[in-house]
Design a protein around this nucleic acid. Structure first.
Lengths: 253, 253
DNA sequence: CGTCGCATTGACTCTATTCAATCCGGGTGG
DNA sequence: CCACCCGGATTGAATAGAGTCAATGCGACG
């Protein structure tokens, strides 16, 4: 019954001592960090039979605010923005999602935000009902979802502090450091050179500022030597210390 | 083994056909609406053996941001505010809790906000470990917690929209309507006369405004006939329609 | 009756917004 | 290859909405 990979690489199908033939999840890039990490191979197989991968281009919408919620998603690659709109078009981005992130907390029947790709991305779509069936029989998963939700609330509260009480400079500094942390997840340490897949307008709508204010503040940071703008929408953090004290509202200069 | 009430009232200990001697939860005022609603009587008995009631006066602190988290709480009566501080004292209130609300999402080891009583209140304190033990064996409870967390994220996103994109008038209108909804929970319909247990400063720190701006905006609403200030920190909503359209950013007058 | 804390009101300031004019880089088509 | 275009980014000047500072009002309480 042994099956060897034709290319000689250790077969991902041999994980866990059992053969998981035709289980696409076993080879999944974000398997260990996504919600799925909480699932046994059997549950994963069960779920994977209903999962579908979706490829998105920059600007593609996954679902709109108000749409009936029909699925959960795991971001396999790329980046998304989540946002809410007011009647007159004012927009608030409530979060950015990256590789490994989960979309599915915070809605029951209808979506309460729009989800849109910032760049070409790949999602794993899990039908609502199927996922909930699995979740109901996998306490591990329930536990993990609760942990994720808990972290979500914590970061939402941090964002409230930012939006309600921080200055433009403090907001931008907080944002850059957050991006650095997020992008350093895989390396398990903050990155000094971060890629910024969102536009200035997106940053503004996330930070409760206008494009112009974001741009001006970026320029100020650049002039002060705190950051450096590189090609391809990358920013290098040059003075993390000062940036941190600004972000925490300790530095009034 | 029969035990009759000395005062002759129908004994709450006789609920559910079994004798729940010394189960204070059975008589609990918020039993049906709090997290506890998800627990069976047996689980409730188990948990209640470790629960402790705490009486608070206005201004009393339940725990501080940064303190190690040692317990979960259910608000049995009264009202709390949750807030975060910046180094220089700027404050953001991230939520108000009322009768039936649960404190315990959004922290794992340390508290990420301070919890303080707005007026004299009564809490039910559930030791962290005990509660989690029960939760681990009661999928119903896990499910309920997830629902609560989900609702928490949803309202946090709504608050981000408010803080990031709404004007002072829109914020206040949203707040008043929210208070109306919350206080109408028991009656299952929004109340027109609401009690406002928090100070103008608290409202400001919740809405990302200063005391003065809150006060001015309240006056403006009063002058426009949208609300009426009554005695004892009560406010009457006179024109819910207009207030709603302002809250949703539809009305620019 | 006086005091204390909170709320209100007024006058002025300032931060971020608005409106408007470039600037810049990448892609397209001649 | 280069001129042109287009969307996003930057910069400037003027404005407005909320903040700050300060005085006064008001009600509860001792």
């Amino acid at each position: 019954m042994m099956k060897t990979d034709s290319n000689g690489l250790p077969s991902v199908q041999q994980l866990n001592g059992t053969f998981e033939i035709a289980n696409p999840c076993a080879a999944c890039d974000v398997r260990t960090r996504a919600v799925c990490a909480a699932l046994s191979n059997a549950e994963l197989t069960e779920l994977s039979q209903h999962s579908r991968h979706k490829d998105l281009s920059a600007g593609d919408t996954v679902f709109f605010e108000g749409d009936p919620a029909e699925a959960y998603y795991v971001v396999m690659d790329g980046a998304l923005k989540l946002y809410k709109l007011l009647a007159d078009g004012r927009r608030q981005i409530t979060g950015f999602l990256f590789k490994g992130d989960f979309v599915g907390l915070a809605f029951h029947t209808d979506h309460i935000f729009t989800a849109e790709a910032l760049k070409s991305s790949k999602l794993c779509q899990l039908p609502k009902q199927k996922f909930e069936n699995v979740a109901d029989h996998a306490p591990q998963l329930g536990h993990r979802l609760l942990t994720l939700a808990s972290a979500g609330i914590a970061s939402a509260q941090e964002q409230m502090l930012l939006l309600g009480r921080k200055t433009a400079a403090e907001r931008l500094a907080s944002f850059l450091l957050w991006l650095s942390t997020v992008q350093g997840r895989e390396a398990a340490k903050p990155l000094d050179r971060i890629s910024v897949p969102m536009s200035r307008a997106d940053m503004g709508d996330y930070l409760g500022l206008t494009v112009e204010t974001v741009s001006r503040t970026v320029t100020k940071f650049k002039t002060s030597g705190l950051i450096r703008l590189c090609d391809h929408n990358e920013i290098e953090i040059c003075d993390r210390e000062t940036l941190s004290s600004i972000a925490d509202g300790e530095d009034l200069s």
